[in-house]
Design a protein around this nucleic acid. Structure first.
Lengths: 203, 203
DNA sequence: ATTTAGTTTAACCAAATGGTTAACAAAGGT
DNA sequence: ACCTTTGTTAACCATTTGGTTAAACTAAAT
């Protein structure tokens, strides 16, 4: 993991990232973040006024890592089939490097759904429009079986994201160890796309 | 919602359920639970010794609602195809009545993966064995395309559970309102099964 | 009627927590 | 050199929080 910067602000942000993503907003302690950053607790408040603001900074940074991944599938120029293949492969690789990310985003979003409105404005927030038209066209052409873009999108995200979020549950039920589970994830990099395409393509 | 019982203990458990499932272990406050149960805070500790124990009671109760749903798909005698159809339909109906349940279980499991070991012992904890053999047999027979039972299981759970957990995210990106989102969920009761079956069945 | 056991409450407590303050150090401009 | 701004810290503070206590109430048993 290459630390982006060694300014104090970056050290704080990194430490906060770790703590918040492991413990969530409510479980995180400012003191723990300070310790992990190797600084005084008052300095946290000097750089980021409050826990809430520090949390928002972390959340926005996290989401700004995820957003481009989503945009890739939505606003690309490639075919639906290629999008599914690329997204599944890249996403699973990407998240394997940031395993806390999906659970963090989704948990905190459930804790406070309204908070999302704050973020929707600035950078390239993912929008479905283009993907939607593409799917509708392909369905009309008879390339794809009839399916709403929203449903297909939900399915793609679900199949790729859920294994990371549901990992403890799945590991328990399927009774596999860490190593085997990771092997399953590796396998999914290609299998998920095949699964989806088999489900939607006419022949 | 028919309250199961009006004994104090049940009132506490109900209140704790609401608060814990809304705010999580860390975000929940004993005082809030007491208020919601309409009793004194000390009484919480009289019935359940600590916050931790009260939480565990709530978690176990919640999981004991989910477990039979999972067992249905795992230990049933019906065909793989029927299992997928029944599970998808029933699960989405069931969760629509308990919308906080999946997020609660999964979030808390991620917060403390070890905790699950406590629960694994007692009642019918879901096991994959039977379903696994069934899938392997069907693959050998050529009824199903080659797929590991673990992967298929993950896919089924992902497609059914994720929309509830990822609701805030999905609603934002697809830009649909509450009503439309619920309509999509309703549609999924049958569409998810079709999607899966199209993906795995040979023809 | 009195004891006894279980139930319920108000008041209390120690620890933890987010946040502040005031003093001090470093750096930069003049 | 001197002063102003910015960065950093230890000590402190008010509030919140999970948990306790001791007393009061209730109802059944003796």
């Amino acid at each position: 993991m290459k630390e982006t910067d060694h300014t104090i602000e970056a050290k704080i942000l990194n430490a906060a990232e770790n703590v918040f993503q492991r413990k969530g907003m409510d479980g995180a302690r400012m003191q723990e973040i300070a310790n992990e950053a190797g600084i005084n607790k008052a300095l946290l408040h000097y750089y980021f006024r409050s826990k809430q603001l520090l949390f928002e900074a972390v959340f926005k940074k996290a989401f700004s890592l995820l957003a481009p991944q989503l945009n890739k599938i939505l606003n690309d120029d490639s075919s639906v089939e290629d999008k599914i293949k690329n997204f599944s492969f890249n996403y699973i690789s990407f998240i394997s490097e940031h395993p806390y990310l999906p659970n963090f985003i989704i948990s905190e979003l459930n804790r406070n759904p309204n908070f999302f409105l704050t973020i929707k404005e600035p950078h390239g927030f993912p929008r479905l429009d283009k993907f939607k038209k593409q799917v509708e066209t392909d369905v009309e052409k008879g390339i794809l079986k009839p399916i709403k873009a929203e449903q297909l999108f939900m399915n793609i995200i679900a199949l790729n994201v859920f294994p990371f979020i549901g990992k403890p549950l799945i590991k328990s039920i399927t009774n596999v160890d860490e190593e085997t589970f990771n092997a399953l994830l590796e396998e999914r990099k290609t299998q998920v796309a095949t699964f989806i395409i088999d489900a939607i393509k006419t022949r």
